[in-house]
Computed example of a mutant assay.
Amino acid sequence: MEYSKVSPVHIKKITLLNMVGRDSSGKIVTFEPIEQVNRFLMTHHIDDHKQESDQYSKGLVHFFSFLIKFQEQWDDEFDEDIFDELTDLPRPEWDYMAKRKAQRITYQYRQALKDAVIKEINPDLKLARTTATAYMNAVIKFYSFHLRQGYRFNNPPFDHEIININFQTSGTNMKGYMSKAVHTTDLRLNFPRSKRNSGGAIPSSRKDIRPLTNTEWKEVENILLNTKTVIKNVSGHLKPSKLAIEYSLFFLVSRFTGLRRRCLSN
């Protein structure tokens, strides 16, 4: 508050994280801010001059919820009589990193995200690739912030990597191809390109790019030029609907000029 009087900074919106305990009736009995997260979010706005941080807040809520479940599991299995401080892993904490990568909370979280995307069969628990990637990016940003601040972890939360990306240059460049070094971490999520429209209204449809056969094009052409009627998903129900002229022109231009939905690889 004192700092804001000297050099005020406008924050459009910020969602701070707190550890809340409730009794059996749902009444709040304990309330403790998660300071290490809130400092990161405040710095994101004040020092980096960013207006939005909700994606980071959502990702870190998911991450710390994952950590709390690990802590509950550890508490249930803990036996003081057989616990050995020299060989057994201590209670999971956000800043404790085991010697083995696979046992560090950051790598365990990455594996859980991949499983939630690829292996999860419950649609209520399954994550979209974009959501999992956003959550992982929030965790990487969070730990990167603490590393820059000089926070000393017993082991690094991730390893820094440099990846060279080769890409084709524009027509104004004498070189045919160039390369760019991208600084990243080994926590990044790599998913195979999905061929199913899992996030769309018709999940079973394919979204990979395939050329139409002559028979398929004749059917499409008849819709574009004659019937101008398509089947549309309206509130979960398939209903016939008129195709707007601009959409018909879009597909016709793509067909006869060679334009494509995706021209350059990401």
Results as ranks from 00 to 15, higher is better:
residue 254 S to T: 15
residue 210 R to Q: 08
residue 196 R to K: 15
residue 62 H to C: 03
residue 105 I to Q: 04
residue 115 D to A: 05
residue 171 G to R: 14
residue 16 L to K: 10
residue 262 R to S: 10
residue 200 G to R: 05
residue 61 V to T: 05
residue 205 S to M: 15
residue 168 Q to L: 14
residue 216 E to I: 12
residue 198 S to E: 14
residue 39 R to V: 01
residue 262 R to W: 11
residue 36 Q to K: 10
residue 72 E to H: 05
residue 112 A to M: 06
residue 213 T to G: 09
residue 71 Q to C: 07
residue 145 F to R: 04
residue 98 A to M: 01
residue 48 D to V: 03
residue 114 K to V: 07
residue 205 S to I: 02
residue 94 W to G: 07
residue 155 N to H: 15
residue 238 L to T: 11
residue 237 H to A: 14
residue 107 Y to A: 00
residue 28 I to L: 01
residue 202 I to K: 12
residue 228 K to H: 14
residue 230 V to S: 04
residue 253 V to Y: 12
residue 38 N to C: 03
residue 147 L to M: 05
residue 71 Q to D: 05
residue 4 S to M: 04
residue 160 H to Q: 12
residue 133 T to N: 05
residue 250 F to Q: 06
residue 167 F to Y: 14
residue 231 I to T: 13
residue 200 G to Q: 06
residue 55 Q to M: 06
residue 22 R to K: 08
residue 153 F to N: 04
residue 256 F to C: 10
residue 196 R to F: 01
residue 76 D to M: 06
residue 39 R to A: 01
residue 2 E to I: 09
residue 4 S to R: 08
residue 238 L to M: 12
residue 52 E to R: 11
residue 87 T to E: 03
residue 261 R to F: 11
residue 1 M to C: 07
residue 258 G to L: 12
residue 230 V to W: 08
residue 123 P to Q: 03
residue 38 N to Y: 03
residue 94 W to D: 01
residue 111 Q to K: 04
residue 30 T to S: 05
residue 133 T to D: 09
residue 54 D to G: 05
residue 227 T to G: 14
residue 182 V to H: 04
residue 126 K to L: 01
residue 184 T to F: 12
residue 48 D to C: 09
residue 120 E to T: 03
residue 20 V to G: 02
residue 164 N to V: 06
residue 93 E to D: 14
residue 118 I to D: 01
residue 192 P to T: 11
residue 208 D to T: 09
residue 50 K to D: 13
residue 71 Q to H: 10
residue 231 I to L: 08
residue 217 W to V: 07
residue 37 V to P: 01
residue 144 S to G: 10
residue 78 F to T: 00
residue 252 L to Q: 09
residue 75 D to N: 09
residue 4 S to K: 07
residue 214 N to E: 06
residue 61 V to E: 03
residue 27 K to T: 08
residue 72 E to M: 07
